[in-house]
C-alpha cells in the first residue's frame, strides 16, 4: 500500500537524485535526504519511507555500495559510495531525465 504523503512527489526520480548526491563522495542515508532538500530549497522532500527502500534497491543493483565506518562520533555509521556501474547509470538517467522533461515541456507548449 503506498504511503506517500503529499510531499513525496519524486517517485522514480528519487533514484536518480540519490545517485547524483552519492556521486559527490561517501555519505550516509540521513545526509543524503538532507542534502537533496537543501539544494532544492525544500522543494523536494525525502521521507525515510522512500529513502531507505530506494537505497536498498540501488545497493542490490550494485550501483552503490555500503560500508560501516566510524565517524566523528564513536558510533559506526553506514556510508554509501557510488560504484562504476552506478556512475554509468547516473549518466544514463541524467540524459533520460533531460529527454523526459523536454518532452513534457513540448506537450505543455503545444497542447
Amino acid at each position: 500500500m503506498p504511503r506517500e504523503g503529499k510531499k513525496d512527489v519524486l517517485l522514480g526520480t528519487l533514484d536518480l537524485l540519490i545517485l547524483r548526491v552519492v556521486s559527490s563522495g561517501p555519505i550516509h542515508g540521513y545526509a543524503i535526504a538532507r542534502r537533496i532538500e537543501q539544494i532544492s530549497e525544500d522543494v523536494l522532500t525525502v521521507q525515510q519511507g522512500s529513502l531507505y527502500p530506494a537505497l536498498h534497491r540501488l545497493e542490490k543493483k550494485a550501483f552503490i555500495t555500503s560500508d560501516w565506518q566510524t565517524g566523528e562520533t564513536s558510533k559506526p555509521v553506514k556510508m554509501y559510495t557510488l560504484t562504476v556501474d552506478g556512475n554509468r547509470q547516473l549518466e544514463e538517467e541524467k540524459k533520460h531525465w533531460q529527454d523526459v522533461s523536454n518532452a513534457v515541456n513540448l506537450v505543455l507548449r503545444q497542447a
Binding site: 504511503r3 521521507q47 525515510q48 519511507g49 531507505y52 527502500p53 530506494a54 536498498h56 534497491r57 542490490k60
Partner: peptide, 18 residues
C-alpha cells in the same frame, strides 16, 4: 512521529532486495 512505521519500512526495504 515523523519516522512512521518501522515495520512497513523494513518490508519495503526487504522488498527492494527481492
Amino acid at each position: 512521529k515523523q519516522f512512521g512505521n518501522v515495520e512497513f519500512l523494513k518490508e519495503d526495504c526487504q522488498a527492494s532486495w527481492g
